[in-house]
Design a protein around this nucleic acid. Structure first.
Lengths: 301, 301
DNA sequence: TATCTCTAGTTGTCCAGGACATTATCGAGG
DNA sequence: CCTCGATAATGTCCTGGACAACTAGAGATA
């Protein structure tokens, strides 16, 4: 596996890979006949793990110096403390994970659809989908899930949410909310959950999907006369870019347009005027209510 | 705009940008106080254009040497000859484009839904969505569409197709088809169109979404006992990687599992045993019929 | 003890210029 | 007109150095 393939697979840049090798002695790829790096599969696997741990806040130097056992410990340690299922719907969550592992797609669909029907869309998203995402993320992190199993799960949820959104009556209510993610943020699940919740409350949602350049977010917000621009940042979004990104976007948008920042990445943004941080889904609903109660809004709607 | 931002925005690698500057004298970024490259917006815009033309087969040396007028000529020349609307549903296509430009989301949804109802899913996809995608691609290429307009359009089609797929009766028929795209291929639209067509014919579709590592495609195919693995490559997929990718995947999969390669990128793959190229949607339907008529298949189902 | 500040270490990204495998182009000969 | 080899074009990889931005821990201060 050459350096480009590893970059693609692990998300670590070429420069980073070379500099780690130079500094820490890991990874230690073999070379082909032209002196180009060839990474064995097990090193790539370890790099993937390291990337996850680093995104959680651990430092590369530590991980490279770590022995095998120590490394394994860290992998597991990273996975468990985050666990905090609010309970209640644990059954559905456990069953979902089991069905994904069993590769039983039909039963998985049935289970999720039933849960949605039973609880209603709002509670389903807040009480089931959100913790389920966490649980699947953890399962993947700890190696219990293969990548393809995570993809399969994710695809099912996306499909389900899109369908639910599509079946809502076409909304023309206020506020008008533009939803998207910035470049480099590919995760669409959070966006879909928010879109569903907001549409359910009668807001008009205009989704641009993922990775919209900032200039285009601005243009779209103006063109569609949005009252609010909502962007979603996942936990994987590079923490150091969050601040600059949010304030840059804030500066580009007219002050009459609110900027909402949601998702796990929002926790690393700093609050400021005209920027609303939404670390949880419930906060999103509260923000909507807040917006509607704000008398100043009458001007802009 | 620094070199990383340009890489992300244009799809041209850092190395490529530096080597062009060295060899052709374009782009010619300014430097900040630390000697790092700063690309002005207009050069980035031109780079974006160049990338498109290069993907169409033009050569960088030529483009860099080209004068302003010559460049403009090439841009337009590249856009027009590809036009080949099969007619018939031009009205819907024209209206769709007009509605996107007018930012009238509600009317756009209505129009597309109506067209789908009127024609039926299969004809809608083959006769409307496919040419529409080409038309939008061209509009974007020629600068008639902003990025956000293309995103908006794409989001609507995705939503519509997903909903249609979800409303089909849960299929348990043969063949079992695993659908996904390889890493570096983010375009999901082609995949959705194919999924809809195949599900409509009673095949069991298992979609993993985009960017599944090859190893995981293999694992998923085995785990779900797929008869066929179908991957979609868009026109944007780097041509030189197609061959290696397809043959590598072919080698990983058991011979009992067919490999279908679809999308605009499939035209650049070379035919080989066990690899079915599907340059058009119609070819996909034919391939499905072919698979079902193949007596040898009885063994694997 | 708690909080702040400063310094030394860590880390990702950038740069230059060289090398080379691969791919396209073009001219000569069948 | 087509095929084949030489030549040029092109993207990607390499090394090794630099540095800005960030982190952590020691020490000072209240």
């Amino acid at each position: 596996m050459n350096i480009s393939a590893v970059e693609r697979d692990t998300g670590l840049g070429k420069d980073t890979l070379r500099v780690w090798e130079r500094r820490y002695g890991f990874p230690q790829p073999t070379r082909d006949e032209h002196g180009e790096r060839l990474y064995p599969a097990e090193q790539v696997e370890r790099l993937r793990m390291m990337k996850r741990l680093i995104d959680q806040g651990l430092r590369p130097g530590r991980l490279c110096a770590a022995s095998e056992e120590e490394f394994a410990t860290l992998c597991n340690a990273g996975a468990s403390p985050a666990r905090s299922d609010p309970g209640q719907h644990e059954a559905v969550i456990g069953q979902t994970i089991a069905l994904v592992k069993a590769n039983d797609l039909a039963a998985l669909r049935r289970l999720l659809k039933q849960a949605m029907m039973r609880l209603g869309l709002q509670r389903f998203i807040i009480d089931v989908v959100a913790p389920l995402n966490d649980a699947v993320g953890e399962a993947w992190m700890s190696g219990a899930f293969e990548v393809f199993e995570e993809h399969l799960y994710s695809e099912q949820i996306k499909s389900l949410l899109r369908q639910a959104i599509g079946n809502l009556p076409a909304a023309g209510g206020t506020p008008r909310i533009l939803l998207t993610t910035p470049p480099d943020e590919q995760h669409v699940l959070g966006l879909l959950m928010v879109e569903a919740l907001l549409a359910l409350e009668g807001a008009t949602c205009i989704s641009l999907g993922t990775q919209t350049p900032l200039v285009d977010i601005e243009m779209a917000a103006r063109a569609h006369q949005a009252n609010i621009v909502a962007i979603s940042l996942s936990a994987a979004f590079p923490a150091r870019q969050v601040g600059a990104l949010v304030s840059q976007l804030r500066q580009m948008l007219p002050t009459a347009i609110d900027l909402w920042v949601g998702g796990a990445g929002a926790q690393r943004a700093t609050a400021a005027t005209g920027i609303v941080l939404l670390p949880t889904l419930q906060a999103t609903l509260d923000a909507l209510e807040g917006w509607r109660n704000e008398p100043a809004r009458v001007r802009h709607s």
